[in-house]
């Protein structure tokens, strides 16, 4: 964002989640945003049918982190043919939980006066990274030692031309916090923490070598199934 824009986590561009040809003329594109702890689904609804659309409502299937609408879908006026409206749906994390495959999958039902339509979309796990995710240094050291090596996953983040301070600042904007930095043999080692809305802590070490655009990310977590999704967020944020 530019000067004066509210800060928040990385927001992906909207993509088409429901194609008009599969939904009797209703096209839905969307993305997810976290701004100051408020989670939202940002939607664009387009009427590509010949008649007016009314009576919109939305429902989520149960999902891995209990994501659910915190209010109704506010489409206050009928949607005319060829009209698009943007709607922000506030979300809460207090819905029913069921582990999804992939973990960040969300199944959505949208209805209007014509029919009910279903689609799936995936949210970036960074939607769940809370603002108080900076772990105490002492706790980090103890936890890092305590989590078994089998729970460590390693990833390559390729083609990133940022030094460690810039990378660290960028990540902090998405609630990935740097706790310590050490330089060993020309490599900057960043120790970082992330806390998910459900209380899961993720610990990370990012190695940045001067002149090498490929960084090594090691992730330790007691729930190792989240690691690859945290890695995806690093890539998205650092490449944005």
């Amino acid at each position: 964002g530019g000067v004066g824009m509210p800060t928040g986590s990385y927001v992906a561009p909207k993509t088409v989640w429901l194609a008009a040809m599969k939904a009797k003329g209703l096209e839905i594109s969307g993305t997810f945003a976290r701004r100051g702890g408020i989670i939202q689904m940002d939607l664009s609804l387009t009427n590509k049918a010949m008649s007016v659309m009314t009576d919109f409502a939305i429902q989520f299937n149960r999902n891995s982190f209990g994501l659910s609408p915190a209010g109704p879908l506010q489409v206050l006026t009928p949607l005319s043919p060829n009209q698009t409206i943007d709607v922000s749906l506030p979300l809460s994390m207090s819905g029913p939980i069921m582990k999804m495959e992939p973990l960040n999958n969300l199944q959505v039902a949208v209805k209007n006066n014509i029919d009910v339509f279903y689609f799936s979309c995936q949210y970036p796990l960074s939607l769940l990274f809370v603002e108080d995710g900076k772990m105490e240094r002492q706790v980090f050291l103890a936890t890092w030692k305590d989590i078994p090596n089998d729970n460590e996953a390693q990833f390559q983040i390729k083609d990133i031309h940022l030094n460690s301070d810039v990378a660290s600042n960028k990540l902090q904007g998405s609630n990935i916090f740097t706790i310590a930095k050490r330089t060993v043999e020309g490599q900057d080692m960043l120790y970082q923490s992330v806390k998910l809305t459900n209380g899961i802590w993720v610990l990370a070490e990012m190695r940045i070598q001067t002149g090498n655009p490929n960084h090594t990310l090691s992730i330790k977590c007691r729930a190792p199934e989240v690691s690859q999704f945290v890695f995806q967020c690093y890539e998205l944020v650092l490449k944005s």
Binding site: L141, R182, M189, Y191, E205, S218
Partner: peptide, 20 residues
């Protein structure tokens, strides 16, 4: 002093990760 200990512990962690 306690913080010095933490600083040192992070240095040891980084060293051990670079030269296991």
């Amino acid at each position: 002093e306690m913080d010095d200990g933490l600083e040192e512990a992070f240095s040891r962690l980084a060293e051990s990760r670079t030269n296991p």
